[in-house]
Write a protein that binds this DNA or RNA. Structure first.
Lengths: 161, 161
DNA sequence: GGTGAAAAGCTTCGTGT
DNA sequence: ACACGAAGCTTTTCACC
């Protein structure tokens, strides 16, 4: 599958505004509505577009505390990992979870909660109870400097899978 | 400002699908289109809704490497911080940047790049050149387990600012 | 890829409960 | 506050160039 500059511009615009109409989008990229609509459909069917979501204000929701949590496991066996991951995915407080390289942590989690009191309950009542979890290191967000959902697209100048 | 269960359901649905029509949304929450539209408008004007974005597939874009980067600064003065933050915000590779608590890092960054070769250029050519940066510790994502943009809304059962 | 027309869908009133 | 129904508009989607 190949993308040209027009596709790139379409994606850049949609990454910022998912609710733009095809009519307006076509005008912005210098196309008539029909081929513009065709391109969008092609991009969506290709799997490149993962979805359209509404972003809410974390603070106004009362979710004032963001924690980055490094998790260390006792043994690195598939069953340990699977059980841990399944459990973590069921926690709505966790917005991100990855297996990572580096010194002391196997997993890096990002969790979003109301306050420190809630976080303590989350930590003691949920996270540390998962079998295999031997180490937990919490780091808290003091201030958010930047948060983006848009990826850079400069690197796909022409053909790209 | 107060939110009831219906507002909560509206937000839950929109967090998953930003392009839903008011008609369908109204049906899902058990309302007629008119009051549903009023509620959505009220929620947007309240600032609770930050925007509607399209999410793209990071891997299919060719951005195969995600790095978590801990940054240590030499001095914790406002001018050092401001300059650093302004510079970091101008890097499209950085999708997240926060001031965090904890041992050895002042900032935690999340960066998204094509590969390790690109990352090295980013690190040496950009990040480590910023005045005040004394320590950089990179941790790489081996596998993504979970990634959410939706926040939990269970905690706002009735009234909430 | 562009154009124009037709069709479908959505939003927005007014009115009544 | 909400439901209903009609009007009016935007948007999408054809067939064709």
């Amino acid at each position: 599958m190949k993308f040209d500059r027009t596709d790139r511009r379409i994606l850049e615009i949609m990454q910022r505004d998912a609710r733009i109409s095809n009519l307006e989008l076509a005008e912005l990229v210098g196309l008539s509505p029909t081929p513009c609509s065709r391109r969008v459909k092609r991009l969506e069917e290709s799997g490149l577009v993962r979805g359209h979501v509404t972003l809410l204000d974390q603070s106004r929701l009362g979710l004032k505390l963001t924690a980055y949590i490094g998790i260390t496991m006792d043994r690195h066996t598939p069953d340990r990992f699977e059980a841990f991951e399944k459990e973590v995915c069921s926690y709505p407080e966790v917005v991100e979870c990855s297996v990572v390289t580096g010194q002391s942590a196997d997993y890096l989690l990002k969790a979003v909660v109301a306050d420190m009191e809630y976080y303590e309950r989350f930590l003691l009542g949920k996270l540390t109870r998962i079998p295999g979890v031997t180490g937990v290191h919490s780091s808290f967000e003091l201030r958010r400097v930047l948060q983006r959902t848009a990826f850079p697209l400069d690197h796909l100048n022409d053909g790209q899978s």
